[in-house]
Each structure stands twice: as structure tokens, then as C-alpha cells.
Amino acid sequence: MKTAMFELKAALCAVFAGLLAVGSTLGAAMLISQSVLQTRSATKANADPVVQPALVTAGARLFALNCSHCHADDATGDEGPDLHGLTKSDARIKAIITNGVKGEMPSFKKKLGDADQAALIGFLRSLR
């Protein structure tokens, strides 16, 4: 009887610990998720410039010539990743276009100048 009571008390502690572990993990995850979402939407709102249609048209042409081979004609990804809804900054995208990604993507430093890259980024920003 004494052992059974002791085991029961231990079981109550175990249930409490299990619920606490799951509850605190889920709570922390929800809080972080909320804060990440807020940061993302704030960043997007600040960084979302009005993309000029001419820039998008020029960027689309450059995309078809240089990028669609790997990222698909509609930029949904093929050999390369899907480029819709990019969350990276313009500077980061520019760095990737300029330097490429080792073993994954070639550098377009010599092929695309600053204006071309700006147009390309404008086109990528227009993808939703």
C-alpha cells in the first residue's frame, strides 16, 4: 500500500513534468513563431517598395535569358529553388546573383551589371 501510494505520487509528478515540458515547448514555439511573423511582416512592409512596371518587364526578360533554365520559366523552381515570396534582403539577393552559390549556382558578376541586377530583383519582388 505504501509503495502504491509512493508510485502514485511519482506518477502525479511525472504527469505534471510531462505536461510542463510539452506546454512550455509549445508556448515558447508559439511565442517565437508570433514574433518571427511580426518581424517578417514589418520587414516586408518597410522593404516593399513600389516596383516599377518597366523594371519588372526588364527583369522578366533577364530572368528568361539567365535564370529560367534552372529556376523554371515561371520561377517556381526546377533544378534551382522556387523564387516566389523571397524573404531575403535585396542586398543578399544581389550578393547571390553576383557571387553565385558554391556547387549550386554560377556567378553572374560578369554577365549582369548593377542595373540588370536591380531589374532582376524588381522582377523577383513582383513574384507572389
Partner: peptide, 11 residues
């Protein structure tokens, strides 16, 4: 599973 593992370990 996570909750159960923690609970079983504590017990």
C-alpha cells in the same frame, strides 16, 4: 510522445 517520454523518465 515528448510529454510521455519526459513523464516516464521522471517517474
Amino acid at each position: 510522445t515528448f510529454g510521455l517520454l519526459v513523464g516516464l523518465s521522471v517517474w
